[in-house]
Computed example of a mutant assay.
Amino acid sequence: MRIVKYLFIVSFYFFIGTSGAQNTANPFELRASGSETVANKNQPKPIAEQEIDHSNPFEIIHVPANYALRDTLLVKKPIPITSKKVKNQNFLFVSISLLLLFLTILVVMNRGLLANIYRAIFSDTYLKVVYRFQNSGHTLSYGLFYLFFFLNAGLFLTLLLKQFKFNYFASDITLFFVCVGGIALTYFIKHSVLRIIGLIFPVQKEISYYSFTIIAFNIFLGIALLPINSLISFSSDQVANLCLYLGVIFFLLLYCIRQLRGMFLAANYLTFQKFHFFIYLCTIEIAPILILTKIIYSNSGNSL
């Protein structure tokens, strides 16, 4: 009995020691602070644990926001790409259509004029024949073709200025008419100065022939710019940029050929009037191109 009593006492003290050891504080145990405990209490219960009133059809279930899941499943709408070229499709379509209609009417009125202009560009002798034929009563047809050149060159200059981000005018239609008016005014001044020179100096015949040479080359250039403008207006950006550069190169090529024709025409006067010819070349031929280039670069944010 005494042995049983001793075993009972030892078991009792052992039980008390183990329960006390479990209640003692663990120095490595991390306990939550009071603010975290309050935050945990304020967290919404899961949807399954919320008390939902199914009898109320307007009951709103508050679902906790899962930002990681939201960012993963959120599908962003694509931002529409709008460019100047897309916005101006109606204006370009109407312009190209009217120019095609205008050219069709001109060709019906005078079918042989385009063939004569094409041959005159590559033959100075044939150009003189066309010049004499033009003086016999076809001034109106050449004037209408010259107007076609102003419209087509104005459209090409508009597209070129838009490429250089020329935003001085809010409307592209206004920019188009300004370009057409600027080109028309430039050539009006040019022909007027040539006429005044022909009246002052005894070179009226040569000046008249050179003025007609300018008209013939510009008519050919205006017709050639129509397909270039069409490709620029309705093709991709890469093709449009390529056509812009090709149009500029084509204009410079025709300009150089025209200047060579003028120099051959004035070969008899270059021997005695070199200074006067140089003044004319710089003032009438080179200065307008340099001024126009300066205006384009200045308004596009660049500087020369």
Results as ranks from 00 to 15, higher is better:
residue 239 V to W: 07
residue 258 R to K: 12
residue 256 C to N: 04
residue 261 R to K: 15
residue 265 L to T: 02
residue 266 A to L: 05
residue 225 L to K: 13
residue 249 I to V: 08
residue 242 L to G: 03
residue 256 C to E: 07
residue 232 I to F: 04
residue 243 C to R: 02
residue 266 A to N: 01
residue 254 L to D: 02
residue 253 L to C: 08
residue 237 D to Y: 13
residue 227 P to Y: 02
residue 247 G to V: 08
residue 252 L to P: 08
residue 243 C to Y: 09
residue 232 I to M: 13
residue 228 I to V: 15
residue 259 Q to C: 07
residue 235 S to C: 14
residue 250 F to D: 13
residue 246 L to Y: 05
residue 229 N to S: 14
residue 235 S to K: 05
residue 248 V to C: 13
residue 240 A to C: 05
residue 246 L to V: 13
residue 261 R to L: 11
residue 256 C to G: 04
residue 265 L to Q: 02
residue 251 F to P: 04
residue 225 L to E: 12
residue 244 L to V: 02
residue 262 G to M: 02
residue 249 I to C: 11
residue 262 G to N: 03
residue 265 L to V: 00
residue 248 V to T: 11
residue 244 L to T: 09
residue 258 R to W: 03
residue 234 F to N: 14
residue 225 L to H: 08
residue 253 L to K: 08
residue 234 F to D: 13
residue 230 S to H: 03
residue 229 N to G: 13
residue 242 L to I: 14
residue 249 I to F: 09
residue 242 L to Q: 10
residue 236 S to Q: 05
residue 228 I to T: 08
residue 229 N to W: 03
residue 257 I to W: 09
residue 230 S to K: 01
residue 226 L to G: 10
residue 246 L to I: 12
residue 241 N to M: 03
residue 246 L to N: 05
residue 256 C to P: 02
residue 263 M to C: 11
residue 238 Q to S: 12
residue 226 L to T: 08
residue 230 S to D: 14
residue 255 Y to G: 05
residue 236 S to P: 13
residue 264 F to G: 02
residue 248 V to L: 15
residue 255 Y to C: 01
residue 229 N to F: 06
residue 266 A to V: 00
residue 232 I to K: 03
residue 230 S to L: 15
residue 245 Y to P: 00
residue 225 L to G: 08
residue 262 G to L: 01
residue 226 L to H: 04
residue 242 L to R: 09
residue 242 L to S: 10
residue 250 F to M: 14
residue 235 S to D: 09
residue 248 V to S: 14
residue 237 D to L: 13
residue 252 L to D: 15
residue 258 R to Y: 05
residue 243 C to I: 04
residue 238 Q to K: 15
residue 233 S to C: 11
residue 261 R to D: 12
residue 264 F to R: 09
residue 231 L to W: 01
residue 241 N to W: 00
residue 231 L to C: 06
residue 264 F to C: 02
residue 253 L to A: 15
residue 262 G to Q: 01
residue 251 F to A: 11
residue 253 L to S: 11
residue 250 F to R: 09
residue 225 L to T: 06
residue 248 V to W: 15
residue 251 F to I: 09
residue 230 S to G: 15
residue 244 L to E: 08
residue 240 A to R: 05
residue 238 Q to L: 11
residue 260 L to P: 00
residue 237 D to V: 11
residue 266 A to C: 00
residue 234 F to C: 14
residue 254 L to C: 07
residue 252 L to G: 15
residue 245 Y to D: 03
residue 230 S to Y: 06
residue 251 F to H: 12
residue 253 L to P: 00
residue 230 S to Q: 10
residue 248 V to N: 06
residue 257 I to H: 07
residue 240 A to T: 15
residue 263 M to S: 10
residue 250 F to K: 07
residue 236 S to K: 09
residue 259 Q to E: 11
residue 249 I to Y: 08
residue 265 L to C: 02
residue 254 L to R: 04
residue 245 Y to G: 07
residue 264 F to E: 05
residue 235 S to M: 08
residue 249 I to A: 15
residue 232 I to R: 03
residue 231 L to D: 10
residue 240 A to M: 04
residue 251 F to W: 09
residue 242 L to N: 06
residue 261 R to A: 14
residue 260 L to Y: 03
residue 247 G to Y: 07
residue 247 G to F: 07
residue 248 V to E: 07
residue 243 C to V: 07
residue 249 I to Q: 03
residue 265 L to K: 02
residue 232 I to T: 06
residue 255 Y to M: 10
residue 239 V to A: 06
residue 255 Y to V: 01
residue 238 Q to A: 10
residue 258 R to C: 01
residue 265 L to Y: 00
residue 266 A to Q: 02
residue 248 V to Q: 09
